[in-house]
């Protein structure tokens, strides 16, 4: 299993469990591995929790706080269980702002809007889309999200402009 950690909002990884054990990380360092929807405090990642139980003087507390796995192991488990668990952990809801995956680039929508004759807005969306992954790979998660949102905004502007101009397009067509 490989883990990613975020120290001062800079993403590091992939790391193995041993590498994490060697580092002197605070229990609230954000951590993510495949299968987790959100970044969570490293002491609350089930497989890593034991690393922090030993260090922590407050053994009682850590063992109580450790939540069950975020994802139910079987598909048959009701999906509503997950949000309920999240609600009991206000910390995790705040963390939702930091995505584990690269934010969407909306590139496909940008291309489609360009092809649907909404120039030049689709072009702007493509330019923003081109920066999302570069920012994300550089560890600038906030920057990546900003560009992702801008790309989405221009795709929306593009389609709305297309819809607004639709009556004019049909008038042109009839004349």
């Amino acid at each position: 299993m490989e883990y990613w950690i975020a120290v001062n909002k800079i993403k590091e990884g992939p790391l193995t469990e041993e590498q994490i054990a060697q580092r002197d990380l605070a229990p609230d360092t954000l951590c993510w591995r495949e299968g987790l929807d959100l970044w969570m405090p490293i002491a609350e990642v089930p497989e890593l929790a034991h690393l922090f139980e030993q260090k922590d003087d407050d053994v009682e507390q850590t063992s109580v706080v450790t939540p069950p796995p975020l994802r139910p192991m079987s598909d048959s488990a009701p999906a509503t269980e997950v949000p309920k668990q999240l609600q009991s952990q206000p910390m995790q809801i705040k963390l939702q702002a930091i995505p584990a995956k690269c934010p969407p680039t909306y590139l496909v929508w940008a291309i489609l809007s360009t092809l649907c004759c909404c120039l030049p807005f689709g072009i702007a969306a493509i330019v923003y889309a081109s920066n999302v992954k570069t920012k994300f790979n550089g560890g600038d998660i906030e920057g990546a999200m900003k560009y992702s949102e801008r790309a989405a905004l221009w795709v929306i502007i593009s389609f709305v402009a297309g819809l607004i101009s639709l009556p004019f397009q049909i008038i042109f067509s009839i004349i």
């Binding site: 120039l119 049909i170 067509s173």
Partner: peptide
């Protein structure tokens, strides 16, 4: 058909 929208930029 005349009922298809025509490109505003082109017009």
């Amino acid at each position: 058909s005349v009922f298809f929208p025509r490109c505003v930029v082109k017009q």
